[in-house]
Design a protein around this nucleic acid. Structure first.
Lengths: 128, 128, 128, 128
DNA sequence: GTGGTCTAGACCACT
DNA sequence: GTGGTCTAGACCACC
């Protein structure tokens, strides 16, 4: 596995798991892989995975059943909220990037409207 | 410098330089740092910088004046195009991400309209 | 240091520190000992102290200033709440003990009223 | 078995047996387990159990019938007294704790009244 | 097998 | 010196 240097691995693992949850790859209430398996999969120490999952547990996104494993929350509203929050964070980062590239707010909005129109017409996002 | 593993470093350097150009940090017609200096700055081999600049030269974004150095193109339209192209590529990547997160095209558009409204009201992008 | 077996050490350390905070031995906004010093003081591994403090940080009871140290929250209301919560938890445990000893709710209340009267008269808690 | 370090084990065993007596788990006049069995049960040396029971005998809480075993006193008033004494000792310890946590006598009384009200209303002690 | 805890020891960035 | 992160390896309780 390739993790960006410069950001803690456990935070990157959190993001990976969160993405699997919001994208529905892991369903609400479904069992997660064991700590040891994830550690093997990501090529990190089990403690690092443990730290990531502990934090997600604290965020109530996963819960633990002792001696059997960890499960994704069954609260679908919470998952939808997380998804929206992740999407908005990503959009904001994008817009800040645009700002740094020299786009004014007005230009950014124009760019967006343009993309929206194109998406409505094509019915898809992908251009390739 | 920290480069992502698993993407060639010279491509990442191209992106760094392009960003400096479109953001106006390096102006049209301005002289670039020497290959040697960039190599030191980025902590990479001069050959890697050379490869990056060659490709940008091929794209007509920079041009070489023998014995004096490399310069950014003076064609401002080309720079504007590059900027737009970079912005759109980034947006498309974002939208594909949203699609993978489970958002339909309609939901993505709604999300965007929402952000546009907020930006119009606040006059800024940043939420923090 | 002597920790009860059977309960995780980091939880016991949390209780120790919380007690110092609610009792005013460490004042709001005051700097805590360093992780390494606490580890020496309690005779445990620095990571164990780290884990305890991380959880308290998550509870917003302490905050970290990078490279300088950890500090107790300045929110005195939060500390008062914590104190009340700790006191009530202790009382409830006591009452459950009484229940197990065979006291009915009425008898427990009678016992308490008795103690209250005595305390009002003596103006103190201590009997010795 | 897990005994607290730093308090003699025989005192902790006394408390365990007393608790069984006052809670009615061992009835007045009932035969106690043999020293040997208790030693096995608690995982301690028979001498330690012997010391505990000797002291309880001295307190007239148990009595020995040669060649048959030890029995709990049949004096129910004494058991009720013991129970009350244990409860009060526990309460006093709790109040000293509160004092150390910074509560005045008045605040402690208020806290107690509050708990009494709650217990009267709910008819139970437990909050969970 | 599961998660949970703990230790020892290492390296980093920051000041 | 500070906190933060990470690894390797160990033992525990539970089922």
């Amino acid at each position: 596995m390739d993790f960006e240097p410069n950001t803690p691995i456990y935070l990157q693992i959190i993001d990976l798991i969160k993405f699997q949850i919001v994208s529905g790859k892991i369903k609400p209430g479904e069992k997660l892989s064991s700590v040891r398996d994830m550690a093997l999969e990501y090529g990190v120490n089990p403690n690092t995975v443990q730290k990531a999952l502990s934090q997600m547990e604290w965020e109530k996104l996963v819960f633990t059943v002792r001696t059997t494993g960890r499960y994704v929350t069954e609260d679908e509203a919470m998952i939808r909220d997380l998804r929206k929050q992740m999407a908005e964070r990503h959009l904001e980062e994008t817009f800040v990037l645009f700002e740094n590239m020299g786009y004014s707010v007005e230009e950014t909005i124009a760019l967006l409207q343009d993309m929206c129109e194109r998406m409505k017409k094509n019915g898809t996002i992908r251009t390739v």
